[in-house]
Amino acid sequence: MNSLRELFGYPFMVNALQAGTIVAVVSASMGWFMVLRRQTFAGHTLSIVGFPGAAGAILLGISPAFGYFGFCAVAALLIGAADPRAGTTTYRQESALIGTVQAMALASGFLFVSLYHGNLNGLTGLLFGSFLGITRGQVLTLLAVGAGALVGLAIIARPLLFASVDPEVAAAAGLPVRALSLGFLLLLAVAVAETAQITGALLVFALLVLPPATAQTITGRPAFGLGLSVTLAMVVTWAGLVAAYYTPYPTGAFITTFSFAAYALARGTRWLAERSRSTRPVIASEVPG
């Protein structure tokens, strides 16, 4: 207990814990809808697009925040234009487009960094984040952007839920399914752009997919699931930060490992429960792997 008090004595740890909490709440809420809508690939690509944005902004000498938000918004519009739910493309074409956008974004990021005469530590910082070097100002910016994204999500949450669960019926009921989809992608882009500045482009995805996937394995109820997802994300982030404080290993490795352990536990429990419930071998072979 004493060493925990000592941990809170360091301002950088307090900043990291506060930033981590904001990041966890925002990405776990956004991620819950992302997982529900099966848009993990789009989410992963959006989270990566922040990297060339930041690298390009550094090359031009402007604030990386502009780069993060600008690139993520453009990528969200590109991906949104090929949304198969809108009926313009097939899933096959959509995933190929997302993959190409992602590779091109990463390639541009690499070009920007090498044009900047590659500060390689900077490169790893952009990709893997620097949880322990967060300033007070960054925490406040995070809070503002995060609150904005959450308010936006809260406004469209109810129709978005409807449109995600059953797009045809929602469209028949007069909901603007396509606009909702695009709006969600833009909100997701804002959330990951903000998060990527703290966790690095490569690790945003872990908080975006793992706690929501765990929550949706445990429950199908929306409100309970969202709450569970946010709680899980906060717990793993705190645990990861504290573990990284006491060991020489990076925060990201702990956060991803803790969240994956929770996910594996939830899947394993559900698999066992389904197995004991159904004695017929036909059903057992239909359990998704």
Binding site: R38, L203, F205, A206, A213, A253, F254, T257, P288, G289
Partner: peptide, 13 residues
């Protein structure tokens, strides 16, 4: 997709 994403998020870590 969600299973793939979960596994490779951890792999990245």
């Amino acid at each position: 997709d969600v299973v793939i994403g979960s596994v490779f998020a951890w792999m990245l870590g």
